[in-house]
């Protein structure tokens, strides 16, 4: 759903998919992007969370990524502690590893759409994924196919 009062996403806008786990990166030194297609799969919802970064300085883009990571880390820490388990002060599960960047036009070229979804400010969702069928593996294969297409059109910018 489009957020009311927010300008729609234009074709030329760059979008950032923040990567919070190294599990979405190839660990060898292969040629090409180190970002795995899996990072573009929208499960469990059928919206993929991205940020609109047009006009931002590099520092602002990174700051937003670090903010997202720190929010997820705080949520995770509170959950673990809430279960009565230990979570050492110096432990970090989620951190900003970098981002996959893709132009909105490229998202649309594969048959998906980008719609603003605020709050938080500048947040958007990649939508129009194939409708869920109730067959988990069928849905997964469709999403993987789209994720591979997105990954081929994206590039990865690693955290410093």
């Amino acid at each position: 759903m489009t957020t009311e009062g927010v300008e729609s996403v234009r074709d030329h806008e760059p979008l950032a998919r923040y990567i919070l786990t190294a599990s979405f990166l190839y660990k060898d030194n292969r040629a090409g992007t180190p970002l795995r297609p899996n990072s573009w799969i929208p499960h469990p919802s059928v919206e993929l969370s991205v940020f609109r970064i047009e006009g931002w300085q590099e520092e602002q883009v990174i700051a937003q990524g670090e903010k997202v990571a720190s929010e997820r880390e705080a949520k995770h820490r509170n959950k673990i502690l809430g279960e009565g388990k230990e979570y050492p002060e110096d432990k970090t599960t989620f951190r900003y590893h970098g981002r996959g960047e893709i132009i909105a036009r490229e998202v649309r070229s594969v048959g998906l759409e980008v719609l603003p979804k605020e709050p938080p400010p500048r947040h958007a969702d990649v939508v129009n994924w194939p409708p869920l069928t109730g067959n988990k593996k069928h849905d997964e294969s469709s999403q993987m196919a789209f994720a591979m297409k997105l990954n081929a059109k994206a590039h990865f910018i690693a955290a410093a």
Partner: peptide, 25 residues
């Protein structure tokens, strides 16, 4: 080519062959 394996007998796959995309279970 990507093959995805979960808890049950069905496995999902998706692949890119140039301009062609394949997918299935």
């Amino acid at each position: 080519l990507m093959v995805s394996v979960g808890n049950d007998e069905q496995i999902a796959y998706a692949g890119v062959f140039g301009t062609e995309t394949v997918q299935g279970v």
